[in-house]
């Protein structure tokens, strides 16, 4: 029997066998996602217009992306086997994804999407005022004595810099360019 501790798995119901060939559940999912993306993008190359050989000069437009996709797919096949080998060397690939993202991440992400969607409708300054007050509040800020000056001074300064110094024209929105 081998004395190599890696031959005995990692306990907690983890699969037994050499760490080199043990697969890790979350990475199987990641690999599957990468492979699905590769397959879809590879399939899409068949919709690229074909060009006569004389015009294409031996370089068809689909050739390079296909080669890249094949490389990605080939490397992706290594991912499920990586976790236990890394763990043996003290590297935990699950450290950043073990916990499901907290509610604040989802709320922040959604707020960013809503903000970008609202920007052309509201105009730059109102939109920035809203996000600079909404985000600190979402993240738990309640010191109004700091928050109020921040909300007033910061967006105006940023927009002044870009609109007046760098001559950028921002979306006017419903405010019709009363501000920026």
């Amino acid at each position: 029997m081998s004395n190599d501790p890696s031959d005995h798995g990692h306990g907690d119901g983890e699969p037994k066998g050499s760490p080199s060939f043990k697969m890790h559940g979350p990475d199987i999912v990641v690999t599957a996602i990468v492979l699905v993306i590769c397959v879809l993008l590879y399939a899409r190359t068949y919709w690229f217009d074909t060009v006569p050989s004389s015009l294409a000069q031996n370089v068809q437009p689909a050739m390079f992306p296909r080669l890249v996709l094949i490389c990605i797919a080939a490397i992706a096949l290594m991912l499920p086997f990586e976790y236990y080998r890394k763990l043996k060397r003290g590297i935990d690939l699950d450290s950043d994804r073990r916990e499901f993202p907290p509610r604040l991440v989802w709320v922040t992400g959604a707020a960013l999407i809503v903000f970008v969607a609202a920007l052309p409708l509201l105009g730059a300054l109102p939109a920035l005022l809203i996000i600079t007050i909404a985000m600190p509040l979402m993240w738990g800020e309640r010191r109004w004595k700091i928050l109020v000056p921040y909300v007033i001074i910061f967006p105006i300064s940023v927009l002044f810099l870009f609109a007046e110094v760098l001559r950028v024209t921002f979306p006017r929105g419903i405010t019709g360019g009363i501000f920026y």
Binding site: V116, P136, I146, F170
Partner: peptide
């Protein structure tokens, strides 16, 4: 406080990416 730092970063990110070509698609 990060409650002010990161909203500021976001503002710069939005305004900066828009200013590049002045189109919302970049944002």
């Amino acid at each position: 406080p990060r409650t002010f730092l990161w909203p500021s970063v976001f503002c710069f990110a939005v305004v900066g990416s828009y200013a590049y070509q002045q189109q919302m698609m970049d944002v």
